[in-house]
Nucleic acid binder design. Structure first.
Length: 632
RNA sequence: GCGUUCAUAGCUCAGAUGGAUAGAGCAACAGCCUUCUAAGCUGUGGGUCGCAGGUUCGAAUCCUGCUGGACGCACCA
């Protein structure tokens, strides 16, 4: 700080502006040195020190395929979690699965009815999600002509809901539902009997469930994997959920996404019922047309249906409270499409109202499995901590044939394109090598694992495509744009890094520098190099390439501000834009200034410079969850 | 009808708290691979920043109105 002045050469006033002239050489060397020393900690900040942020994202519905629509939330949420982490926050990633609602009654009905007809159960084992999706579609086409199906579905859901709410298993309600300990891979043979004809046994003609005198013996039950008798609906639902989560995890794994917790809407349903009751007693909620509402603004918030069952909103209120109790978060982000804006503004309003009416709560002693007092105590602290991270819709999203696009197919298409590209590159390379062999300088090494590379390029293209524009704008889905690897794309960024690696490797060999770029992030080697260069400058204002070098270094120096911008706006695209500019600067430099055959000292310094560019590009791609490739 | 949101080059978008001559990529055209990866680079053309007012020394950016699109508006999530 004392020698702050040395970084400026002069100051002058020009019109309405005061211009500071920086000492470019000192500035450039300072930045390069800083990056080399701090490496992947360069540009980190501590805005969130001691603070906890929860990011609720992805949140697909179980028993439904993971489509491209969910990718946007997933990509944005995952990237935000990295960005918050980079800013010193304690970050908790939650996947809130849609595991509750009438559609499960439909699915169970369809499963029982169609199981033995033309749908193949081995298909269910091989690809449960696609199988269930087919069931769902089949149910809808058949129920048009057969209203009986809808009635059965409603009843089955009612039974499911009942058994979920009645369950005594608290861990089932509050635990991480992705736990793999109970293995549902082998379907219990009871289930076959259940599916066959049990429904007739316990449904009445009025469309109600028959009272069971002898609960454990009744036909509608099957043994779960611990041998306990549970309703068949509950069993199937758990099975569907388990299989769905397994499938989701496989996909998440592929795109480097992970969660700290998997929660389900079903978990909150029990508390939601209780919550509605409390809000009514506290006179915050009231009854209107048999339903329970909380009056606010123009559109009152509906928290219970006229039949007394809860809604999405009531479950979200309960979930937020549970999470606050558990994590004491300072901030919670819901990464959900902007079409749900009203829902979230209502949710946030509820907490505002709870805060304003704090004193109205009666302390209750008749708590059941939870501590109601502390539950409501925390409610007043939640207001202002919730944020809806909305994003625009994906328009025109369909396969080339016009159906829903499964994420995996989407990635595969991108991968195939990348494979094709790799193949033609290799051919071209071998053609060129015909010339090169005369000089025999080329080592003719092809890309190590073409399959893996293609996959990462495909994923990079797909993820980056969702993160390159501001969240708020609707994206026009266009296959040609997504599958383009040129210009402002993920592969362009990956390619820039691959180029730096390959260049450094070549120079390393040519000049015998022995710079261990492999160990850049985990060895002391670099720190030592830097320490040895304490007094030395990497670049000078008189260098022939200084203008271009400085342009890049200036941009490198802005990375920290870019990260802060991104976190304060919850906007990954700010990082994307930054990286595209950086890559463009670098590629321009690469093309215009060749390093081979220059003085060793100079080349060595430029390698250091290139490493600083690489460090920032890689940090940035990590923030976006775009895979980094050594070679392409 | 009410609410939210968007409108910048032929297309997709930057331009985020008002600042100097509004920038990229794609597409088009003209070039550049027998020295570092052409998934790249260099150049050319392309704009009444939806329209009309207002605030300001200064507006793509802020305010008002209008037009056009998207989404949402009580028992779905």
């Amino acid at each position: 700080m004392k020698d702050f002045k040395q970084y400026f050469t002069s100051v002058s006033a020009k019109g309405a502006y005061i211009n500071f002239y920086v000492n470019k050489q000192k500035f450039a060397n300072y930045i390069i040195k800083k990056i080399l020393t701090e490496k992947n900690n360069y540009a980190r900040n501590y805005l969130g020190k001691g603070k906890t942020v929860i990011i609720d994202f992805s949140s697909p519905n179980i028993a439904k395929p993971f489509g491209v629509g969910h990718l946007r939330s997933t990509a944005i949420g995952m990237s935000l979690s990295h960005i918050y982490d980079f800013c010193g926050y304690e970050t908790i990633k939650i996947n809130y699965l849609g595991d509750f609602g009438t559609q499960f009654g439909k699915l169970i009905t369809a499963f029982c009815r169609f199981k033995n007809t033309n749908l193949d159960l081995t298909e269910f084992k091989n690809d449960p999600i696609k199988f269930l999706y087919k069931l769902y579609v089949k149910f809808h086409s058949e129920s048009e002509n057969n209203p009986e199906l809808d009635a059965e579905a409603r009843l089955r859901f009612k039974k499911l809901e009942q058994s979920i709410i009645e369950t005594d298993d608290i861990s089932e309600l509050f635990g991480d539902i992705s736990d793999d300990s109970d293995n549902y891979n082998n379907i219990n043979s009871d289930v076959y009997d259940f599916c066959k004809d049990s429904f007739k046994e316990y449904s009445t003609e009025e469309g109600n469930i028959k009272e069971d005198k002898n609960k454990d013996e009744c036909k509608g039950k099957v043994a779960d994997n611990s041998g306990k008798k549970i309703f068949g609906e509950l069993y199937l639902w758990k099975l569907f959920r388990k299989l769905s989560i397994q499938e989701f995890k496989r996909i998440y794994n592929m795109i480097n996404v992970s969660f700290d917790f998997y929660e389900g809407e079903s978990q909150a349903s029990k508390i939601a019922v209780y919550l509605v009751d409390m809000l009514l007693k506290a006179k915050i909620a009231e009854i209107s047309m048999d339903a329970v509402i909380i009056p606010m603004g123009k559109t009152p918030a509906l928290i219970a249906k006229s039949d007394g069952t809860t809604l999405y909103l009531s479950r979200d209120i309960a979930t937020a409270m549970l999470r606050f109790k558990k994590f004491k978060f300072d901030k919670m982000l819901y990464v959900v499409g902007s079409e749900q804006s009203l829902h979230f503004s209502q949710l946030f309003n509820v907490f505002k109202i709870l805060k304003e009416n704090e004193i109205k709560f009666e302390k209750r002693k008749d708590t059941e499995k939870m501590d109601a007092d502390s539950f409501f105590e925390c409610a007043s602290q939640i207001s202002g901590k919730l944020h809806h991270i909305k994003f625009g819709r994906i328009i025109g999203m369909s396969t080339r044939k016009g159906n829903l696009v499964f994420l995996e197919d989407y990635i595969n298409e991108a991968k195939e394109k990348a494979q094709l590209k790799l193949k033609t590159d290799e051919q071209n390379a071998s053609n060129i090598n015909v010339y090169k062999l005369e000089n025999s300088t080329s080592d003719n090494s092809s890309v190590p694992d073409a399959d893996d590379t293609a996959l990462k390029v495909g994923i990079g293209a797909v993820i980056f495509n969702d993160l390159k524009t501001r969240r708020s704008v609707d994206v026009n889905f266009n296959w040609d744009n997504v599958l383009s690897f040129e210009g402002q794309t993920g592969p362009y960024l990956q390619y820039s890094i691959a180029r730096i690696n390959s260049l450094i490797e070549k120079l390393n060999k040519e000049y015998s520098f022995r710079i261990e770029i492999e160990n850049l992030y985990n060895s002391e080697a670099f720190s030592n190099i830097i320490a040895g260069l304490e007094k030395k400058d990497f670049c000078s204002i008189n260098d022939h390439d200084f203008k271009s070098v400085f342009e890049i270094v200036k941009h490198l120096s802005l990375f920290g501000d870019t990260v802060k911008d991104a976190v304060s706006h919850d906007e990954p695209s700010i990082i994307s834009t930054y990286l595209l500019d950086l890559a463009a600067f670098f590629n321009s430099y690469y093309q215009n200034y060749k390093l081979m055959n220059l003085e060793p000292d100079f080349v060595y310094n430029r390698i250091m410079f290139l490493i600083s560019v690489k460090v920032v590009l890689e940090s940035g791609l990590n923030l976006l969850t775009v895979p980094i490739l050594k070679k392409m």
